[in-house]
């Protein structure tokens, strides 16, 4: 890829924007997963029942 080419700024901007959005998505998912796991562990340590029966479904409906 030639960095002296015409309109190269649009190419760089496209890749930079894609990288930022994808990095944000990944970071958001990791943070949420860790947050939920941490709260689960804290609750389990506080004495809440550790496991549900395998047949039960944690469905909110």
């Amino acid at each position: 890829m030639s960095f002296a080419a015409e309109h190269i700024g649009f190419v760089i901007a496209s890749y930079a924007l894609s990288a930022i959005v994808i990095a944000g998505l990944i970071a958001g998912h990791i943070l949420r997963a860790h947050q939920v796991e941490r709260r689960l562990k804290r609750l389990e340590d506080a004495g809440a029942p550790r496991r549900r029966k395998a047949t039960e479904v944690p469905n909110e409906q």
Partner: peptide
């Protein structure tokens, strides 16, 4: 593959979040 990785991870987090809400209510 990125979507699959994110989706699997998000589904796991959502299942745990629902479990968490039910445990909090029970607690």
């Amino acid at each position: 593959m990125l979507f699959l990785a994110l989706h699997l991870s998000a589904m796991r987090a959502e299942i745990n979040a629902r479990k968490l809400r039910q445990m909090e209510l029970a607690h």
